[in-house]
């Protein structure tokens, strides 16, 4: 792949890297930038740099190299532009919009419902309030009359359980 420092990566290699990593890279950038369009811009910049100077990176670290370049670009953009916090559902939707076709929405929704149903009621309430009602943890703690630590523990356990269930599917 990168046999000579002066030789650029061949288009097929770039295409393969794009196919392998673009979804995860884009998700990462949405997490950093909270903006779908900005994330897409940074993805393009990152792969343009891959074409230009990607041959300087070692093959086994190319994924890390991509994320590193993307993060640097994202932090520059973030400093230049005010990045507004989105609701978590909106953040998820930004990611989903670009991956339409890869996720079959109805099937995914059924799997998510199933995973949510397996949570304890206490965990489900916290998930509902934090993700779907966009309430901060301290507000949730106040409304439920619980210590903040209890709410955080419930959310953390719920997320672990949801990940396990949705990965298993």
């Amino acid at each position: 792949m990168a046999t000579d420092e002066k030789t650029r990566l061949d288009p097929a290699a770039v295409e393969a890297l794009y196919a392998s990593h673009v979804t995860e890279l884009r998700a990462f950038l949405i997490g950093v930038l909270r903006d779908g369009q900005l994330a897409q811009d940074v993805v393009q910049i990152t792969f343009a740099k891959l074409i230009e100077v990607g041959h300087t990176a070692r093959e086994e670290t190319l994924k890390g190299w991509l994320f590193q370049v993307a993060l640097n670009e994202a932090l520059v953009v973030k400093r230049r532009k005010a990045v507004h916090q989105k609701t978590l559902v909106r953040l998820g939707a930004l990611f989903r919009e670009d991956t339409a076709g890869r996720l079959t929405e109805a099937e995914t929704a059924a799997e998510v419902r199933q995973a949510l149903a397996k949570l304890s009621n206490e965990q489900r309430i916290v998930v509902q309030m934090r993700i779907y009602e966009n309430k901060k943890f301290n507000v949730i703690a106040s409304e439920l009359g619980l210590p903040l630590g209890t709410v955080l523990t419930r959310m953390r356990t719920a997320l672990q359980n949801l990940r396990r269930e949705l990965q298993a599917d």
């Binding site: 979804t23 978590l88 559902v89 998820g92 990611f95 989903r96 996720l103 995914t108 929704a109 949801l162």
Partner: peptide
């Protein structure tokens, strides 16, 4: 970070 966003992507279908 990417995993968390992907999880929210799944959650947002409901």
């Amino acid at each position: 970070v990417a995993r968390s966003v992907e999880l929210l992507g799944q959650m947002s279908t409901v």
